[in-house]
């Protein structure tokens, strides 16, 4: 059984005169030991899904299984979560906050575990400072310590690097990789395409409450972008027949060709050579998840 199973989950929020279909029959599984990314624009339904996995929201239809069961209190005690902008009681210190979670998760030798986390996340200078006096990065380190305190089998990460400085975000990504290597299954939601691209084994793209794509990162990209953008700077402006034949976009002596695969790429370069053009500069741009994001949202 996979650590996270989501089967046909739908959720609609209703109020007086308004209705939002947050999720429409979403199904996917997260395999043991993988980092799975949930990608999508604002309001796509990612956080609703996380909240359903945490039993903060009940689905209208369908079911979620975490570690083989519904997310009851017992299951929740074996997993953990970290979200961007995590808040704790402003009057307590990081050590006191961790003491509470050590109590709840029944950590044996709690003070020793807290010491380990304080050392690991370099929290020594802030462990006795009030939460309200911590910076965003320090708050995130505390949220991370809290998320690791029970050595979770599954870690849900909801926009963990939202609003963080790039250097702190890099530390977070490093920690995520380290944690994953130690066997923790991770479900990550993020806006940052490069983050998802760097960290995730598989992704699901959620848009308007539906999964529009799911698979390995490379596979998903290639499905939509079996293309290379190649930009050549030639010694002279190419002739009209050549431009028409290869469907080029021309700007002075720069040409851009969109090619479907590696064979087409080498054929095109051969044709350029055969036509007598000299290549002064060459650039090949592979599609990123960002391109994919923009393309899918645009199509929808």
């Amino acid at each position: 059984m996979h650590p996270i199973v989501v089967r046909n989950v739908s959720k609609t929020y209703k109020g007086r005169g308004w209705k939002v279909e947050a999720l429409k029959g979403v199904s996917f599984e997260v395999k043991k030991g993988e980092i799975f990314g949930l990608l999508g624009p604002n309001g796509a339904g990612k956080t609703t899904l996380i909240n359903i996995l945490l039993n903060l929201i009940g689905p209208d239809t369908g079911e979620v299984l975490v570690l083989g069961s519904r997310p009851t209190a017992d299951v929740l005690s074996k997993i953990n979560v970290i979200s961007g902008g995590s808040e704790f009681h402003w009057a307590l210190t990081p050590r006191q906050i961790l003491q509470f979670f050590a109590d709840v998760y029944r950590i044996p030798n709690p003070e020793q575990r807290i010491d380990e986390l304080v050392k690991l996340l370099k929290m020594e200078p802030i462990e006795h400072r009030k939460f309200s006096w911590l910076s965003t990065g320090e708050k995130l380190r505390l949220a991370f310590a809290k998320a690791l305190i029970n050595k979770p089998k599954v870690l849900l990460m909801d926009e963990p690097t939202l609003g963080l400085d790039p250097d702190v975000a890099r530390v977070v990504r490093k920690e995520v990789r380290r944690l994953n290597k130690s066997g923790t299954t991770i479900l990550l939601t993020s806006h940052y395409m490069h983050e998802v691209e760097q960290l995730c084994d598989r992704i699901a793209f959620v848009y308007q409450g539906k999964i529009v794509d799911i698979g390995e990162v490379q596979q998903v990209k290639l499905k939509h972008f079996a293309t290379y953008d190649i930009i050549l700077t030639l010694d002279k402006k190419p002739g009209a027949a050549f431009v028409k034949k290869h469907r080029l976009v021309v700007k002075k002596n720069k040409v851009r060709a969109t090619l479907d695969n590696e064979q087409a790429l080498s054929d095109f370069l051969a044709a350029v050579h055969k036509a007598g053009y000299q290549v002064r500069n060459i650039g090949v741009r592979k599609p990123t998840l960002e391109d994919y994001f923009i393309k899918v949202v645009g199509q929808q």
């Binding site: 945490l54 039993n55 209190a73 005690s77 995590s86 808040e87 704790f88 979670f101 998760y105 809290k146």
Partner: peptide, 13 residues
């Protein structure tokens, strides 16, 4: 303080 979320998702009923 928004800490109630962490309490419930830590498995406190």
């Amino acid at each position: 303080t928004l800490s109630i979320r962490h309490i419930f998702i830590a498995g406190v009923t």
